[in-house]
Write a protein that binds this DNA or RNA. Structure first.
Length: 301
DNA sequence: AACAGGACCAACCGCACTCTG
DNA sequence: TCAGAGTGCGGTTGGTCCTGT
């Protein structure tokens, strides 16, 4: 090996050895944040060097994108976000970054972790593949309705007066009534972006005061835009307080257990979401003992 | 109180793609 | 056109915290 080459190799080896790994310290976070606020993102290897960090560029990028960036949301995923993840994952599979694009403030890493720890856990308990059609049927039929109902509860408890389902405060169009939504009104409210999905501003305004019907409708709209479906499509949401009474909805069922027990005989691929009782908002339904997919599954076999 | 097992999540790794000179 | 650097992405790992015994 030529001497110059050897020297450079040794230098690299020393640099490698000096590189820090593992958890970031407050000091490192401060260095990185300050540097980026002055110089902006990008050229991460340069960032690492110039900011005086003994980290790889990749490590700096990851730390910034997943943790330090100012618009990162902290805390548990709310029901709207969980529902979106379930829907989008059913469409795109493990395209975490793509899914994350539609959840403002959430990172692909966070969504991936959520899927692996919460969703796949359910699949394991059922002894079925988490990416199988069978599992998605279960998710769609039992899990999503719980989320939808939590969203409904949240919207009614948070703002009894704000059931107007306004998707986007910047948009003059308001969808009236969550029960039936025409694709046209949705199209006007949520403008698809270049890849055929509602734009970020539309999604960032889906908050706790938005009706869950909006969200369900949006996910349906996504299906439409994927399939290039034209014309008028109606979205029916069951279980909302403004839709039908619990008695009408559940018919002869008495409570969630009865309802679930009956589900084995229902067409679970129907577009409507049937909603059952739930307790508190922002509770992760996967932690809910009521949400026992093992039991549920037996009814379907 | 101590321990084990599980859940959660930040961080790392390897690969593939894009950009640039 | 090509090689190397930079970047993005999905999978995996390992540390910490929580919970049950």
């Amino acid at each position: 090996m030529p001497r110059s080459m050897k020297k450079s190799f040794e230098a690299n080896e020393t640099e490698e050895a000096e590189l820090r790994r593992g958890p970031w310290t407050l000091e490192e976070d401060t260095l990185l944040t300050n540097y980026i606020s002055l110089n902006g993102e990008g050229r991460w290897n340069m960032v690492a060097k110039c900011a005086g960090l003994k980290r790889t560029g990749k490590s700096c990028r990851l730390r910034w994108l997943n943790y330090l960036k100012p618009d990162i949301k902290r805390g548990n995923l709310n029901p709207q976000e969980q529902l979106l993840i379930l829907e989008l994952h059913s469409k795109w599979g493990n395209r975490w970054s793509k899914i994350a694009q539609h959840l403002p403030g959430r990172t692909d890493n966070e969504i991936k972790n959520y899927w692996r720890t919460r969703v796949q856990k359910q699949a394991r308990q059922l002894n079925i593949e988490s990416n199988s059609e069978k599992f998605f049927d279960a998710v769609r039929s039992f899990w999503m309705p719980r989320l939808v109902e939590k969203m409904e509860q949240n919207s009614s408890s948070n703002s009894a007066a704000s059931c107007s389902s306004q998707l986007n405060s910047n948009n003059a169009n308001t969808i009236n009534g969550p029960e039936f939504l025409s694709s046209e009104s949705l199209m006007n409210s949520v403008r698809p972006d270049s890849d055929g999905f509602p734009n970020d501003s539309g999604f960032s305004d889906i908050n706790c005061s938005s009706s869950m019907a909006d969200l369900v409708a949006i996910t349906r709209l996504m299906d439409m835009s994927d399939q290039n479906t034209a014309g008028s499509v109606q979205f029916q949401l069951h279980g909302g307080s403004q839709c039908v009474s619990e008695e009408e909805e559940y018919g002869h069922f008495h409570g969630f257990d009865d309802y679930m027990a009956s589900m084995g005989n229902l067409d679970i691929s129907s577009a409507g979401y049937h909603v059952a009782n739930a307790d508190s908002m922002y509770e992760d339904v996967t932690q809910d003992p009521m949400w026992n997919m093992d039991d549920i599954w037996h009814f379907r076999e």
